[in-house]
Design a protein around this nucleic acid. Structure first.
Lengths: 200, 200
DNA sequence: ACCTTTGTTGACAATTTTGTCAAACAAAGT
DNA sequence: ACTTTGTTTGACAAAATTGTCAACAAAGGT
């Protein structure tokens, strides 16, 4: 028995939640979207919350593993930053609602989601933060709290994707292509911001 | 009759939704939080959706008016940017979940929220965008698509607040104060990024 | 005092959503 | 052919949530 139904539900739930933003989808909607009987959602995952948890953990794990890999990979610092930018942009494009769900859940009191942050991912992050500090001492990049360097990358790359619909409205950007053109200009700009900005 | 109950419900709903992130709160929870009978929510606002709409519109209007005021105020460009940074930080601190709600709703098909973007706010935005362009020509700030200048401000200031719980987890920032310290360093840093970064 | 308007409440009905269960089904092994 | 195992289904019950309604209270004006 191949048990592809379980995978099918998971994949479709993932897309429904984190790509389309239907975080409040009912089990019926989830089942319909996956093309299966509603009862199967309960059969394979017991409850909706459980399905959430599993799918969410998988997505987060996937993401954090990728980051960890980049943090300790055997390339130059500048290349690492480029890789971080590319991966962040691509991942956010695929799952624009993942962090939104994350934020919402993290803030809640009945936070059912166990912390997925495996100690590995932490070590890699610490490693890269040390590398950032070294680059600051070398004078390659401006000096401030190392985490702020990472926060800058994530902010400058992620936020414009997450906020796309709102920015398009505020700035009257009618077509998707127009926004895409503006966004694409950013990757180079962000590199300039991160590196060229050594003051004094 | 002073009709303070209506205001009471609105204020508490606003806090519940946009400060605490309980976007999926039931009418019962809303009523409880406001300290009134549940039926009164329907009495004053007909339906929960309607309450959402009203409260949301008020918050957004308040925000956009403030931005518009800054955009056309009679201060130097640099001071405007400073004012934008301060206001954005403060407003996001108060309502960290406002945009999240916005994003979720905007993405949905049955988007009940009429566009609140009054033409006024648009004019002011356009005005400031032109000012940004002029500054680019003067050489005060690096040259790229003017909207990207604004997007940079919003991203660098808003995202770290919205993502606070996640960043604290990822970077192992145990105390609120620690994060606050790191965040406060950003305002100055962002100014440096926005202005000092004129390449060649 | 009376009437009207406004505000408030508890009870009710309708709808939605969830999870469970027993029965049906398919595929494989014996 | 028979059993076992895992999968799928429809029907059911329980719970939660929503909006409405009629009754009740408070206040103010006439």
């Amino acid at each position: 028995m191949e048990c592809q139904t379980e995978e099918q539900i998971k994949q479709h739930a993932k897309e429904l939640f984190f790509s389309r933003g239907a975080l409040d989808a009912s089990t019926q909607e989830i089942a319909d979207f996956a093309g299966v009987n509603r009862t199967l959602v309960n059969y394979y995952f017991r409850s909706k919350k459980n399905l959430f948890r599993i799918v969410y953990n998988e997505a987060i794990m996937e993401m954090r593993k990728s980051y960890a890999r980049i943090y300790v990979s055997d390339i130059s610092f500048r290349e690492k930053v480029e890789a971080l930018i590319d991966f962040t942009a691509e991942f956010r494009e695929n799952y624009p609602f993942l962090e939104i769900f994350n934020i919402q859940e993290t803030g809640k009191l009945n936070n059912q989601l166990e912390t997925v942050l495996q100690p590995t991912s932490m070590q890699e992050t610490a490693f890269f933060l040390k590398e950032i500090e070294e680059e600051m001492q070398k004078g390659t990049i401006p000096v401030y709290e190392p985490v702020n360097f990472l926060i800058n990358i994530f902010s400058l790359i992620s936020f414009p994707i997450v906020m796309k619909p709102i920015f398009r409205e505020i700035f009257c950007i009618s077509t998707e292509e127009q926004y895409h053109k503006i966004y694409n200009q950013r990757k180079e700009m962000v590199m300039t911001i991160l590196f060229n900005n050594v003051n004094q």
